[in-house]
């Protein structure tokens, strides 16, 4: 019987990481599900859903040689994947503000209290060193509709952040 694992790989970016990691997994008989790779501050990171017949230890053994060779940190978690749901987001939030500590906590705290679940989040510090600007875009789902977020957003806008809320309407045709 096969099992799903979440494999997280973090390390200094260099060409060929994905190729070598995926080759090691394929040669070891492990298949990939969803994955997401990104570079954060120049560091390589990937999360992969990995499926195969075997336990955590056998998966770790397959990953160890490539991890050592490339100096990567590898983390493995057993997960439940076969019933995973992908709800469609119904709201997109865009946040801009002068960078300071706590923007994400303020924004997501207010939105969570108003009933929103985050489905996707990306953020970036842009602007200049002297004048950094924080930009965050997140997709979410609010059961009671976008209006449920109005008060929370008004509060955040009072704190000097620019928070835009845009309903997402999926076109079906």
């Amino acid at each position: 019987m096969s099992h799903w694992f979440m494999v997280t790989v973090v390390g200094q970016d260099q060409p060929g990481i994905v190729a070598r990691v995926s080759r090691a997994l394929a040669d070891g008989g492990w298949g990939l599900g969803e994955s997401s790779m990104t570079r954060l501050g120049g560091n390589f990171s990937i999360m992969m859903m990995v499926e195969g017949v075997g336990d955590e230890a056998s998966l770790a053994q397959v990953m160890e040689p490539v991890g050592s060779a490339l100096g990567l940190h590898i983390h493995i978690d057993s997960i439940q994947a076969e019933l995973h749901q992908h709800p469609s987001p119904n709201v997109q939030i865009r946040v801009y503000g002068a960078d300071r500590t706590g923007i994400v906590a303020d924004v997501t705290g207010g939105l969570a209290a108003a009933g929103m679940t985050i489905l996707d989040l990306n953020s970036e510090v842009s602007g200049t060193d002297d004048d950094p600007v924080y930009v965050m875009i997140l997709d979410g789902f609010v059961k009671d509709g976008v209006e449920a977020l109005d008060r929370a957003v008004a509060e955040l806008n009072k704190k000097g952040l620019k928070v835009d809320v845009e309903p997402i309407e999926v076109l079906m045709g």
Binding site: S88, P89, E169, V170, L171, M172, G173
Partner: peptide, 13 residues
């Protein structure tokens, strides 16, 4: 930019 689904592509948006 906007989100689309399709009667002919049932599993994705």
């Amino acid at each position: 930019n906007g989100r689309e689904g399709c009667l002919s592509v049932p599993d994705y948006t």
